[in-house]
Amino acid sequence: MINRRHLIATGAAAAVAGCGQADRPLYSADAHVADYPTVQGVEAMARMVEERTGGRQRVKIFAGAQLGSERDTLELTVFGALDLNRVNLAPLNSIANETIVPSLPFLFSSIDHMRASLDGAPGQTILDALRPHGLVGLCFYDSGARSFYNTRHPINEPDDIRGMKIRVQNSDLYVGMVEALGANPTPMALGEVYQGLVQGVIDGAENNWPSYESARHFEAAQYYSLTRHVMAPEILVMSKHRWDRLSGEDQAIFQQAARDSVPVMRELWDARVADSRERVLASGVEANEIGDIAAFSNLMEGVWDRFVVTDVQRRLVEDIRNLGGAA
């Protein structure tokens, strides 16, 4: 049985000694359940690595937060006790501020724009920014487009959300975004949202179609308004301690296998989004498009000014916007 204590003990020893791990697979963590597209994406990468190295390198995946929360496992990965980790961008924001950029509200004009940006030079800049902090960024996985849902009425313009109590992740960026819309941000664990909606502790929340469906939030909040305000990706990283012990050949194999796993994950993600949307709409949920998205995005100037503070971040924003304009 592998647990956090075991990882700290064996991983720390190997990180110091620089050896002792050749006879075991690389350990990979994911907070999502085993059939989630990110987990299946890493599984695809693992199969490619094993095949391309003739079984010399193997990956064992611990899904469903078996090894702890994303923040806990990220610490283990930096420390070298955990080899690979699929995490949300939010825990990385305090490590490398370049990772804040893809989470900026209304940055991406579409899923295609987001994917082109992360597959291109802006994405590579963000991945490279992790190396000085003990992590090697391998690839980005999708996390969908987030939209608002609530218990009261459809949201068509900012005034419709004004004054609502909206659950957000424990993130200063998300708090600032909701405040800019005139609503009251309420940081809350995802597992508490359903009860919060039922009891009226909160009026609404924001998330993608699969999370809205799988967490059963659509049963309590039946108005889903397609603001698509954030399209932040998720990211697969390797501990730099482990990366540095790989041969140049194996480093190249891991890097290419990670990239080759992205279209596999995206195909699974797109299918899951379509299935979740169909299930939710069949239940009677009222979903509405936003006629004037600029009415929302124009309120974000102060939020961007607060979180885009370095020249590198500004160049990333400019490069991403240029890609959107070219599309």
Rank of each mutant, 00 (worst) to 15 (best):
residue 297 S to W: 02
residue 221 A to D: 00
residue 103 S to C: 10
residue 7 L to V: 10
residue 129 A to W: 05
residue 175 V to F: 12
residue 70 E to T: 11
residue 155 I to T: 05
residue 121 A to G: 02
residue 58 R to W: 01
residue 135 L to G: 07
residue 268 L to S: 05
residue 183 A to K: 05
residue 179 E to N: 13
residue 39 V to G: 00
residue 208 N to C: 09
residue 315 R to C: 04
residue 109 S to H: 09
residue 27 Y to N: 07
residue 100 I to H: 03
residue 299 L to C: 02
residue 153 H to N: 09
residue 151 T to S: 00
residue 71 R to E: 11
residue 237 V to D: 07
residue 304 W to C: 04
residue 315 R to A: 08
residue 315 R to N: 07
residue 217 H to K: 05
residue 168 V to N: 08
residue 219 E to C: 01
residue 321 R to F: 05
residue 270 D to L: 15
residue 33 V to C: 07
residue 56 R to P: 00
residue 2 I to P: 10
residue 2 I to H: 00
residue 293 I to G: 01
residue 45 M to H: 11
residue 254 F to D: 09
residue 17 A to L: 13
residue 142 D to G: 15
residue 300 M to W: 00
residue 9 A to R: 13
residue 241 H to L: 04
residue 205 A to F: 04
residue 101 V to H: 03
residue 26 L to F: 15
residue 166 I to H: 05
residue 230 V to H: 02
residue 224 Y to L: 10
residue 325 G to P: 01
residue 182 G to C: 01
residue 133 H to L: 06
residue 145 A to W: 01
residue 201 V to M: 09
residue 83 D to C: 13
residue 73 T to Y: 06
residue 194 Y to P: 03
residue 83 D to K: 12
residue 259 R to L: 14
residue 63 A to I: 06
residue 311 D to E: 11
residue 191 G to N: 10
residue 167 R to H: 07
residue 222 Q to H: 11
residue 273 V to G: 09
residue 307 F to V: 00
residue 211 S to L: 13
residue 56 R to W: 03
residue 193 V to E: 01
residue 232 A to K: 08
residue 291 G to S: 11
residue 247 S to R: 07
residue 148 F to H: 13
residue 273 V to K: 10
residue 125 T to W: 00
residue 229 H to F: 07
residue 178 V to I: 14
residue 233 P to G: 10
residue 275 D to M: 12
residue 75 E to G: 06
residue 284 G to V: 11
residue 150 N to M: 02
residue 110 S to Y: 08
residue 287 A to H: 09
residue 29 A to N: 14
residue 287 A to Q: 13
residue 291 G to L: 03
residue 261 S to C: 05
residue 281 L to R: 10
residue 226 L to A: 07
residue 53 T to E: 04
residue 319 D to L: 12
residue 198 V to D: 03
residue 25 P to F: 08
residue 140 F to W: 03
residue 226 L to M: 14
residue 159 D to W: 02
residue 267 E to F: 03
residue 31 A to E: 00
residue 302 G to P: 12
residue 233 P to M: 08
residue 186 T to N: 15
residue 106 F to Y: 15
residue 168 V to D: 02
residue 172 D to E: 14
residue 189 A to S: 09
residue 132 P to I: 06
residue 212 Y to F: 14
residue 204 G to E: 04
residue 243 W to I: 15
residue 86 R to D: 09
residue 180 A to R: 10
residue 192 E to L: 12
residue 35 D to S: 15
residue 298 N to V: 04
residue 166 I to E: 03
residue 305 D to Q: 15
residue 54 G to N: 11
residue 2 I to L: 07
residue 33 V to K: 14
residue 324 G to Y: 01
residue 19 C to W: 01
residue 137 G to F: 02
residue 123 G to Q: 10
residue 211 S to N: 13
residue 25 P to Y: 07
residue 147 S to T: 12
residue 232 A to T: 12
residue 235 I to D: 02
residue 276 S to Y: 06
residue 231 M to I: 12
residue 13 A to K: 14
residue 4 R to K: 12
residue 71 R to T: 09
residue 211 S to Q: 14
residue 287 A to I: 08
residue 207 N to R: 12
